[in-house]
Design a protein around this nucleic acid. Sequence first.
DNA 1: GCCAACGTTGGC
DNA 2: GCCAACGTTGGC
Length: 188
Amino acid sequence: MAAKNTAKALKKAPKKTAAKAPKKTAAPGVPHNAWLIKSEPHVFSIDDLARDGKTAWEGVRNYQARNFMRDEMAEGDLALFYHSSSDPSGVAGIAEVASAAYPDPSQFDPQSDYFDAAATPEEPRWFLVDFKFVERFPAFVPLAALKARSDLEGMAVLQKGQRLSIQTVSDAHLKVVLAMGKAKTKLK
DNA sequence: GCCAACGTTGGC
DNA sequence: GCCAACGTTGGC
């Protein structure tokens, strides 16, 4: 299984106190049903997802991103598939949440870059969902094109210093990006 | 390759 | 519990 995130595995077992209570990042009661997921295309691209059909989104080692997958994603949610650290970076297509959240198996694998010595099957630390391929955009949407749109103002991926590998996307912004990519996918 | 931004670690 | 040091992300 290809790793989706290039963050190095935790080198040491973090102290127990390092596992802080998850902070709520979304407004309570407001469902987020659209997402943006980042992947470096040389590691795992939209074409890799097209080839595999479905994949486990392994290797996320950020609590906020984990919480999105564990607590807020639902099967059927759409996600913009974003190619990061690329030339150019931008949105390459659409994926869909294809499972409930479950423990990321790579955290238990000492051979994996994503091994976490502090995680146990009884007390997993990292969760993931499966994503399935929906479509590759007929027109790749570069970051610069997103930035040029006033109707995408406030979109998380455009915020300075935004590094989170999983982000929420409003329906309005999703609609705009789908149109920019000439997507066949329509909002339900 | 640079470096700003940010999350995590660990000394105190 | 503070906060400096460190490591990573990711655009440029």
